[in-house]
Design a protein around this nucleic acid. Structure first.
Lengths: 405, 405
DNA sequence: CGAACTTTATAAAATATTTTAAATAGGCTA
DNA sequence: TAGCCTATTTAAAATATTTTATAAAGTTCG
């Protein structure tokens, strides 16, 4: 008997999720509903404990409005991210806040089936230990690297093979919806919803990881996934004239210059060629491996060799950034991933090189910054996906009983 | 007294514009309104002569539905495109059909002010000669090359300088809204709305012109303009290791390999080096200039040298296509512009080279084809912009008198 | 400090849209 | 060609949302 109301309350919840805190007149503008209508709906949502009164907003010349927010205890998300050596799991509330510690599990060289087991066990443990009412869990978000088909859920790296859809596998494993997403897209979304990219319509998230490079794209205010979800494969753009063979089989890929192994190899070569750097000390006593951690440590320690190394690396990166800048004219480019830990040692040379390569009109109004979300991005970025899915389901629902609260 | 109805009838008009012909149940699904509601609104629009009954749709197992379409005489657009040597002007109806011949005016090396005068005079003439009721003209669409700021309308090529907004200039010149757009975006839109890209959510339009290269981008079903409208600057991607100086000041730009002058220079060099080609015959009697027309003629005439030339050109092009393919995972790539006249001599080698460069997962479900709209694209592509603007204005309108019909 | 103005919230009447139900029209099969 | 099935159309009742009007709670300025 309420044909439109249910979708409309979802709209209110959605806006409150993205804005955090809103007044009735603000919601009226955002939803295109009149103030009395929004007033009634908010009243209803308050009674269902979906909303809470947050306080009074500052007056803008008249009676000051009450502001409302989502009740943090209204709904929860389980978030998982799969990384090189570990899988991290935690629970958040609907306000993007962690409500459990982040569990980190070693995954070693687990087979797809072992990975599934590890995931299942640990997700269950996190849910148990959280003490949260299971009915309030909206879903599970899983961020994984590699190519993931956005329609079938088929991916070519974890949890299965080219024939098994992860979506189907997980549907049998959990009583909650499980959303598997490319980690790049999850991080881009995190940055866009709760990081430096808030309210930005067109932005790029450039992930500079130890093992690879990727790009997450936000166009017209929404995540762009492309036809099948294979967006942002920037690591294999032929950009370097170095003749180095990439693991993809081609030469000159961006990734042959920018990765932990590429950096380590370059350093080793230089040291053998007589270069003087603090990094030599790590290579004593039969230890021939340099990790990114060592390199970043040397960098922030002020080692001139390493600083120069990052300046060189920035040159290649700048060429790639120039390409995406010229193609997509973003308002903001966010740099994330382990390599972005280089901070100013990366950002400043990039900006310098961009002045050389990029068209000034495009560069002028494009901000470039380093992510401040750290390792939380691939976890928190799943929350908006889960919230959207939850609200979409809620809309499709037969208008049966009252909603969870 | 009709708070929502007006926007809703606009929605019906919009859907009919994009689909051409629809039944009431189809409109009901598209608008999220019930069949009785749509029925009433359609009845109203029929009485206002905005819609016409098109015929009966084929039955799908029951009573067959009437199908409705926009009345071609309901509204008109003036469309203009500015090209290298000429300005072309015509009038269309709201169904993307020309209702006047296409007027072509020589613009030589006109100054910005002269250009404005030429445009004004000829647009007026086309309107006069069309005999169309001026009240039915929705607006004027102008497609121009170069960088155009999507917000201010400031462009750096025609009709003004970096300080004058074309939007403002035109507002004083005509009693109709004038929409100035980048020609690349207009052509991409044409291809997306009425060309090979109909119903495609994610596509790229690659313009291969005599003087430059550009990219129009459709993401999530809508034209992507970027932060300021400077999207698709693909001509200056550093892709060639040829050390040729580009007019932008850098070397190795894609445009240094793919353009009329680049091709002509290459041919001349080869001929001087002793190559045998039918093109030599054009260079007799003191004529040292080769146009793209000559080259395409030789190509389709089967000249082996020219065929080979296009195969080489395709290699560079394929590298650029690989980049955008890897970054944006489109469903469709449409090739347009004068160079696309090479047809299979361009398409086949591109596909061959792509097999070498691109990741198979990305290539597999991406169709690449050559535009079939020819020189109409930059004219007809303005129509959807004008229609959208018209409908947006109509929505904002105070719900005063009845609408034009 | 109170009058005038502005903004927000609520109540009652008006109206658009939906739901439910019944009628109509075409295709398919016997 | 009659009768059944399905889909479209129209009609009437129910309900959500808007409009209009009024009250309440702030700010600003004389």
């Amino acid at each position: 008997m309420r044909p439109k109301q249910h979708p409309v309350t979802n709209d209110i919840i959605r806006h409150l999720y993205y804005h955090g805190e809103l007044t009735i007149p603000m919601l009226s503008k955002l939803t295109n509903l009149t103030v009395p209508t929004v007033g009634k709906l908010v009243e209803e949502l308050l009674q269902q404990h979906i909303l809470i009164v947050k306080g009074k907003a500052a007056s803008s010349g008249g009676r000051c409005a009450f502001s409302y927010a989502l009740n943090a205890g209204m709904a929860y998300c389980v978030v998982v991210c799969v990384e090189r050596f570990t899988m991290r799991i935690a629970m958040t509330n609907i306000r993007n806040e962690f409500v459990t510690p982040i569990t980190s599990v070693n995954i070693g060289i687990a087979t797809p089936n072992e990975m599934l087991k590890i995931l299942q066990q640990n997700v269950r443990r996190v849910i148990n230990e959280s003490g949260v009412n299971r009915k309030l869990i909206m879903g599970i978000g899983v961020a994984i690297p590699g190519l993931i088909n956005k329609n079938s859920g088929i991916n070519y790296s974890y949890f299965g093979n080219a024939n098994r859809s992860t979506t189907e596998i997980f549907a049998k494993m959990f009583p909650y919806p499980v959303l598997v997403q490319h980690d790049m897209d999850v991080m881009a979304r995190a940055e866009h919803i709760m990081g430096v990219g808030r309210r930005v319509e067109n932005m790029l998230y450039l992930y500079l990881g130890a093992t690879g490079i990727g790009l997450g794209i936000i166009t017209n205010g929404q995540l762009y996934l492309g036809h099948e979800g294979f967006v942002g494969e920037i690591g294999h753009i032929p950009i370097a004239d170095n003749n180095k063979l990439c693991h993809c089989g081609k030469t000159g890929c961006l990734e042959t210059e920018i990765s932990e192994t590429a950096l380590a190899a370059k350093i080793l070569e230089s040291i053998q060629g007589g270069a003087s750097t603090i990094l030599s000390s790590y290579l004593q006593n039969g230890n021939y491996e340099l990790t990114l951690q060592h390199i970043l440590q040397a960098l922030h320690g002020g080692d001139p060799f390493t600083i120069n190394l990052f300046s060189q690396l920035s040159e290649h990166l700048s060429k790639a950034i120039t390409i995406v800048l010229h193609l997509l004219n973003p308002e903001l480019i966010v740099l994330g991933g382990e390599l972005s830990g280089a901070q100013q040692y990366l950002l400043l040379p990039i900006q310098q090189h961009l002045n050389k390569y990029a068209l000034p009109q495009l560069l002028k109004n494009c901000r470039i910054t380093i992510s401040t979300m750290g390792t939380n991005a691939p976890l928190l970025g799943s929350v908006p996906f889960i919230v959207e899915h939850f609200l979409a389901e809620r809309e499709a629902e037969p208008k049966s009983g009252k909603q969870r609260a």
